[in-house]
Nucleic acid binder design. Structure first.
Lengths: 237, 237
DNA sequence: TCCTTTAGTGACTTTAGGACACTATAGTGG
DNA sequence: CCACTATAGTGTCCTAAAGTCACTAAAGGA
């Protein structure tokens, strides 16, 4: 049998089906607090429970897994996440009562201001503080997925500037430091952070300043390459 | 409709099927050279091409994705990989001519001596040097998956002792350093490496030595916790 | 005995974060 | 106008850990 014949006769439904979904852990800083976007399920299973935004891959719309993830983000927030990272894939016969299921989890950080209005208009989506979300009984294994995402974001905050994607540009060094501190869960030495900020060469001084209380702070923008920037040395934990 | 009714009437095959596979990038050090295990496909598509060991999730045998990966490793090498890490999941409508397909890639390091005989007996499996494998026209997107695995192993060699899983225990410090050097692709300062080796407290001196040419070298075993050990600072690149 | 080879150590340099006090620049209230 | 407070930003010393490289240690072989 040649390949053409094989493909013509190939019937995938001769084999047991695996359900394929994506789930996204979307973080945002709301009043210096780390928040995660959840969606209320209005279908079985776990009907009425809160869950991570996500769903089945749609072969008519999604050329790739990552597309499925960003489509889900867009549907719930109205924006495209400029930082979207694949976290892990969970697959087992037990995680979904409908059958053997595989879910690829993604995580992203988005600036709250950019999507605040849209999220308010989507009536089954809402932001929860991470502490609160972890105490809730979420659908499927979504609590474990959030923990994985937190761990990943914590690590990234120690050796990269990925947390910058949770800020609206331009931003001050303190804005960025506070974002890191929120993800790490402890304060960072200001001087150390500023040194890393400057030595990284990943930021552009806009020349403008912002002033609230006290001395005005310089406003910066991040360069595009910041997404892949890495320090060789981690901050203290 | 309640949940029970929903589940009874749920027909997954009402939706287009997604093919779910796992692929494993299995590395081993053969004469200080990094090698990767490949398997010759004897079915369409890519019949006759070399590919990564892997295949469809088998719902009758595999309780989880990771189980599917280790089962594939066991089938081709006869051993259980004590270090098996999930790499990434690739999913698109184009990577497999049979349809929309998702593959979760795993990577592992195994000691060559432990599986040499078994692999020789499996006539469609063979070790290739990484350079050679990357020059070959492999099935699906397996060349890209190997590159991902190499990148991951390279990073791990800079901040962990994961490469130890490619060695037969006990081993000398030089054995381990050479493993790291192979993954990083450049020499490491002996003194720096020894300092890290000792400060990590992840090794047990067996009291025995091994001697080839020159002064005998102390033999060590790795502690179980080594899998999750991390340095805060990377080696130079 | 000396040469070669590989293992292991000593000691100085370099890098970069930690700590913390100091100065700078804004608003505010007497 | 002058403290006082708040936040931004700097100067300086300390410390941890890697880089460098020469030295010593212990084996076999000519």
């Amino acid at each position: 049998m040649n390949e053409k014949q094989y493909l013509n006769e190939y019937q995938p439904k001769d084999y047991p089906v695996v359900l394929v979904t994506v789930d996204t852990v979307l973080f945002s800083f709301i009043k210096d607090e780390l928040s995660v976007l959840l969606v209320k399920r209005n279908n079985h299973p776990y009907k009425g429970h809160w869950a991570l935004p996500g769903g089945f891959v749609d072969q008519t719309q999604d050329p790739s897994l990552e597309h499925a993830a960003s489509r889900n983000i867009r549907e719930k927030t109205g924006i495209d996440a400029s930082y979207l990272e694949q976290l892990a894939t969970l697959g087992s016969g037990k995680r979904d009562p409908r059958g053997w299921s595989v879910s690829t989890a993604y995580t992203a950080l988005i600036p709250h201001a950019k999507c605040e209005h849209f999220v308010d208009s989507v009536d089954d989506a809402a932001w929860f503080s991470v502490d609160e979300a972890l105490r809730m009984k979420l659908a499927f294994d979504h609590t474990a997925i959030i923990r994985l995402a937190l761990e990943r974001q914590h690590q990234k905050a120690l050796y990269s500037f990925v947390p910058v994607f949770g800020l609206t540009q331009p931003f001050t060094i303190t804005d960025l430091r506070k974002a890191h501190e929120t993800l790490i869960g402890k304060p960072i030495q200001r001087k150390s952070f500023i040194r890393r900020f400057e030595s990284s060469d990943m930021f552009i001084d806009t020349g403008k300043v912002r002033q609230e209380r006290g001395r005005p702070a310089a406003l910066y923008k991040a360069k595009a390459a910041i997404k892949s920037f890495r320090f060789v040395r981690n901050l203290d934990e």
